[in-house]
Design a protein around this nucleic acid. Structure first.
Length: 284
DNA sequence: CTAGGATCCTGTCAGC
DNA sequence: TGCTGACAGGATCCTA
């Protein structure tokens, strides 16, 4: 679930709350949620740097090991401590639950008594501990494409040309082609570019491709810019749905509602194996 | 090489 | 009420 903007929001939150704190305890409640080196090697270490590549969150320790977290569909990072609770990632009621909750897979304790919880309902996500070499050789990171802002319109166009028989949405979701895009922003970018997500790349004009890339940058940046406050709003909302998507979504999960541009009814279908939302008038 | 479908998991919801 | 199947903000593996 969490896409690039959500992971960036998590990165900024963790930077603010647990940078330079020393890990005094780590508990792994689900073995498969931990990968790589022995977890005991994080004990006594401080987290000295946070980074993000696509949807992957990187945390550097002062012994030069790195923890890479990937939240996949249902991962969340929750910090409790210093009278504050920060939660970001997959938006469900766990934000307001007692920690650890039944979906907590891994948790850390810091020397000031605060805690970081990695929650993950479906157990697809993980935290992987690596040394510098392991980080360099990590398959996911090695094959990760540039992010929308690091990719020129020319480069994006050239990458599209290698997948002429794929639906455009499948290409937008492929992390080897462009990094950080998930189901929400793929649908939103297709709406902004006025293209149906199921259209084959072969049918996409250069002008539409440019609009897709620019739309991705625009909608993801807007989400990052409002991420912090919307996440906080969500936590305060006693388990009810937050206004996170409502703020900017033109089509995502708006099926049955009317298009904000033309008033037509937003439809939902299936493209590239994923639920896909679109306006039949704007994206004809 | 690309393209498409199954798969990893748990939970919720719509429709009998 | 209870069952059943579809589906979910992701990525990989397997097959053709």
């Amino acid at each position: 679930m969490p896409e690039l903007p959500e992971v960036e929001t998590i990165k900024r939150g963790l930077e603010r709350l647990i940078l330079r704190k020393k890990i005094t305890r780590v508990e792994i409640l689900n073995e498969k949620s931990w990968r790589g080196l022995d977890a005991r090697r994080v004990l006594g270490q401080e987290i000295v740097e946070f980074d993000r590549r696509g949807k992957a969150l990187l945390m550097k320790l002062n012994n030069n090991l790195w923890m890479m977290a990937h939240l996949r569909m249902t991962g969340q990072m929750i910090v409790v401590g210093a009278g504050e609770k920060f939660a970001a990632g997959h938006p469900d009621g766990n934000f307001t639950a007692e920690m650890p909750s039944r979906h907590t897979r891994i948790w850390f304790e810091f020397d000031d008594g605060s805690h970081l919880y990695f929650n993950d309902l479906r157990k697809f996500g993980f935290i992987k501990l690596m040394d510098e070499l392991g980080l360099q050789e990590d398959e996911f990171l090695m094959n990760l494409a540039p992010e929308p802002w690091a990719m020129s319109e020319d480069d994006f166009w050239a990458r599209l040309q290698r997948h002429l028989n794929s639906p455009i949405k499948a290409v937008l979701l492929d992390q080897h082609i462009i990094a950080g895009v998930g189901n929400i922003y793929a649908d939103e970018a297709c709406f902004l570019a006025r293209v149906f997500p199921g259209v084959k790349v072969r049918e996409i004009s250069r002008e539409t491709a440019d609009k897709l890339l620019q739309g991705l940058r625009e909608v993801m940046q807007a989400s990052i810019d409002s991420g912090g406050s919307t996440m906080k709003d969500y936590v305060r909302a006693d388990g009810t749905k937050g206004s996170y998507l409502e703020k900017f979504a033109q089509v995502f999960r708006r099926d049955g509602d009317s298009c904000k541009v033309c008033g037509a009814k937003i439809l939902k279908t299936r493209v590239a194996g994923r639920g896909t939302h679109y306006c039949p008038e704007c994206q004809a």
